[in-house]
């Protein structure tokens, strides 16, 4: 397990083929402004990993740079010891919900079936078997009843479940999810967390950008605390300490901190 306090100076891990993601010296800059600085980290197999940090800390950027959706200035990312292109099939992605046009004329089933596209390949049609697989995934997230609804007619939480079904349909070994629990109702949150835990129990690795510090300890195994660079990474129990939180969020946490503390004492 990684040490609880940051020890970034020699943190130059070898590319470990058993590690689903190893990031080395990754720097990303928009225009002239760096967003991620010299990120080095390994993500371990079969874990639920949260990426936390204040706004603008580069959480989504980290995920997108890993997936090659935005260019990085330096550094590299290996998946099971190989570059992204070689392992793309094994990697699933759930983008933020507000990044797509929900008015688009597709049904929930269509969206879930998109997860199969990589397996289907270029120019081949979506077969019945693939549709059945997509349906099964909708069932797993409790959305089978809504399979034929146009996606705009679903609530925010339902839309997020459909996105999750799509990710399940990819049958990946590693998932990147950008705020899967943002703006969903309590019931959906519970359902999604259950599915994530199930994925983990099946030996998959799930990396989620997460913003709710109150639930980190309950939902996740590992945490990556990010603020332009990795402040701390490792087991939640070891790393998710008030000290590291303050380093990650700086002064901005204090109010939140106090509120959380107050709630904690109140509750028990």
């Amino acid at each position: 397990m990684n040490p609880p306090t940051p020890k970034p100076f020699d943190a130059h891990p070898e590319h470990d083929p058993s590690s689903p993601v190893s990031i080395h010296a990754l720097t990303v800059a928009y225009h002239r402004k760096p967003v991620l600085w010299d990120v080095d980290l390994d993500i371990h197999a079969g874990r639920l990993v949260a990426v936390v940090g204040p706004n603008g800390a580069g959480k989504s950027t980290l995920i997108r740079a890993c997936l090659g959706l935005i260019p990085s200035a330096t550094g590299n990312v290996r998946f099971w010891g190989e570059p992204y292109r070689e392992q793309r099939r094994r990697i699933g992605y759930v983008p933020q919900r507000d990044e797509v046009d929900w008015d688009f004329p597709v049904s929930a089933l269509d969206v879930a079936a998109m997860g199969r596209y990589a397996q289907i390949g270029w120019f081949r049609r979506v077969s019945r078997a693939h549709k059945d697989a997509a349906r099964a995934c909708l069932n797993r997230v409790g959305m089978l009843d809504y399979a034929d609804r146009q996606i705009a007619q679903l609530s925010g939480g339902q839309q997020q479940r459909v996105f999750l079904a799509r990710a399940l349909a990819q049958e990946a070994d590693l998932y990147f999810m950008d705020e899967p629990l943002a703006g969903v109702d309590a019931a959906t949150e519970r359902a999604i967390v259950e599915i994530l835990a199930k994925l983990r129990d099946d030996g998959k690795t799930v990396v989620c950008v997460h913003h709710d510090l109150q639930t980190i300890e309950r939902y996740f195994d590992d945490v990556i605390m990010l603020n332009m660079r990795v402040v701390a990474t490792g087991n939640v129990a070891d790393v998710f300490t008030p000290d590291n939180l303050r380093k990650t969020y700086g002064g901005r946490l204090t109010t939140l901190d106090r509120a959380g503390h107050a709630l904690g004492t109140q509750g028990g």
Binding site: G68, L69, R88, V126
Partner: peptide, 22 residues
């Protein structure tokens, strides 16, 4: 007809399409 699936996914969710290899 042949590229319906590709056109659909790339129009709906370009980032996903790219991450799927399209």
């Amino acid at each position: 007809v042949l590229g319906f699936k590709e056109l659909r996914v790339a129009s709906f969710d370009p980032q996903l399409a790219t991450s799927l290899g399209f």
